[in-house]
Design a protein around this nucleic acid. Structure first.
Lengths: 349, 349
DNA sequence: CTGAAAGCGCTTACAG
DNA sequence: CTGAAAGCGCTTACAG
């Protein structure tokens, strides 16, 4: 490894000068021709800084930690990692991911370990949108919650705009000409449930359609999926907003049983847009994509802006995405999601 | 943070002595009562070593990097991370995961970055079992390949025992009384394909059953799945070894079309045991689980044994698993996989 | 504008 | 058995 000392020797200056130049602290402090020479030699010798040594001195490691209950074991949220990683990279940070599988002891141990390594801050991510209390081990650390909200309202957080999902899905069905729109929901333990429901109701209300109890259902995937699907069809639904892709199966199966055609007789809009399940649905499923990548990206930018105490808003402009990101100045952000059009919604004629 | 200096001050010895004691280098070198006092104070003050400072001196960071093309975005291999993480933790290492999405430039950049941080070695993992050449950026680094094999045969590696999967699946069907056993395979671009096929053929051969061309098929999931399923049933198969869970759909659908019952008229053994797909198969699918956790665990142990130049075989004994792990002295290991029994195989009567 | 020096928290040859 | 000292590669107040 080539060090600052090597450059100093080669250039005939002190390592102090090399350090100042290479850290961009040379304006009006170092003679320009010297600065140029230092930079040139750094280039020639292929110098790269040793972040470990720098960190020992500055108490800043340029590492950020991502703590997650289950990211690595589920297909749900892996893209959070990608987004966080890309943002970290853009600012010269290394992302370190740790899975805790919801084991509090392991979580504590891993956080402690990362703190020993001098991590500058943490992203605390969960498998699905939920309200959480931060573990004690994070006390005093810069932290941003991803796909989760702080029960104490203190920690900045980012999540999907669940209400907007309900509204957009319902509006999509209205635009397709549906008039009897059902909500095939989930048990209310997930915070997404009441929010998507409220968005659904708001859209109906805005369209002048009165809500009907038998059209807004709670579906426990392992218990009453088939039965609830039957209920929805009995109620004469011509459009269904489904809580997630996994539940869609019950709707497709019931439609087939009744000889109804999805995308013609009945339109379906779902949430998740799971690649893995795509092959199971014919016609292909129109589904809203949760902004995992964007949450990871936003979260990391927010965290780094907290660590460095500066405004990083510009960074968000470089992310190409279908989702709509809130400004970094927001403390509890919600990302507007994109709907991925396939064939399960009737073409407007 | 409490440092060695604090302990030295409190104990009235030098930091050199503290270091020696806390690193277990006191045997016959430090007076036992002093050693005891140092350890005691370390305990009382809640000392934890600063791995960054230690690393600067020793050139060893106790970090290992996990490079993967797509682990975080797929449900296939997330458990590799868990296994590697658990093993790393057992030996006091921090695992740092990086996703490259098969982007060579990004991969190079991330490896370089991790090397700057002084990681002691790398795990190089892929989304599915394949033959790979290590990127140049890893030259000179301790590396172990996970769910992949080195094209050059140099780098140690660990993967599933694909041949064993084919043999075990087929034997399971034989044990259930099947006599016309089909292999519902995949295109041979995956190295798993020829190996599972060979295991299938070996099991048939051992049972004295002649192979039949029309029972051993290649299925391109996006092209001819339904048609191939029809072929298999036309050929009179009463047992089917299916390459993976995703392909099983075609078999179940075709069985339904013909009024045949899976688990009675036709038995199915698959590979992957995907949780996410479980709900789609009725009766529930008997499937062989790929040893992702075990591969990650074994890979990390192997890597650390290389880094530290010592034998860590005992570590494997503590892993509770259904799979059979090779000894750490092996350079190119294959893990025998477990079959997870559900209801898609006929009960022997 | 620049350098010598101290120091971040460790480890380890060297000397005693 | 133990300590003083040097050093890992940086940064930064201090002095000039």
């Amino acid at each position: 490894m080539v060090t600052m000392k090597d450059i100093a020797l080669k250039t005939g200056v002190s390592t102090a000068t090399v350090s100042r130049v290479l850290n961009g602290k040379d304006q009006g402090r170092i003679k320009p021709e010297i600065a140029r020479e230092v930079r040139h030699q750094a280039e020639v010798l292929g110098y790269t800084i040793n972040p470990i040594a720098r960190g020992l001195r500055t108490n800043r490691s340029h590492m950020i930690g991502l703590i997650s209950d289950a990211i690595a074991t589920t297909p749900y949220a892996g893209r959070i990692i990608l987004g966080a990683q890309d943002a970290a990279r853009a600012f010269g940070y290394l992302l370190t991911v740790v899975n805790t599988g919801d084991d509090a002891e392991l979580e504590h141990e891993q956080i402690t370990m990362m703190r020993r390594y001098g991590v500058d801050g943490f992203l605390y991510a969960t498998m699905y949108n939920q309200i959480r209390t931060l573990p004690d081990a994070l006390d005093g650390c810069a932290t941003v919650m991803v796909d989760a909200e702080d029960a104490d309202g203190q920690c900045p957080s980012i999540g999907p705009d669940e209400w907007g999902i309900g509204k957009d899905a319902t509006n999509r069905l209205l635009a397709a000409g549906c008039t009897r729109i059902a909500y095939f929901g989930c048990p209310p333990v997930l915070i997404a449930q009441p929010r998507r429901l409220a968005g659904y109701e708001a859209a109906l209300d805005h369209a002048g359609i009165a809500p009907e109890n038998r059209l807004a259902l709670t579906v426990d995937e392992n218990v009453n999926g088939a039965q609830r699907a039957a209920t929805v069809f009995d109620a004469g639904a011509d459009g269904i907003f489904c809580f997630n892709d996994v539940r869609v199966r019950f709707i497709y199966e019931e439609a087939e049983r009744r000889g109804l055609h999805i995308g013609q007789d009945v339109s379906v809009v779902s949430v998740d847009n799971f690649e893995l399940l795509a092959g199971f649905f014919e016609p292909r499923l129109t589904s809203i994509e949760l902004p995992h990548y964007e949450m990871g990206y936003w979260g990391a930018c927010k965290l780094i802006s907290m660590i460095e105490g500066r405004d990083l808003s510009d960074a968000l402009d470089t992310v190409v995405t279908d989702a709509v990101m809130p400004d970094l100045s927001v403390d509890h952000g919600h990302i507007r999601c994109a709907i991925i059009e396939k064939e399960s919604v009737r073409q407007a004629s």
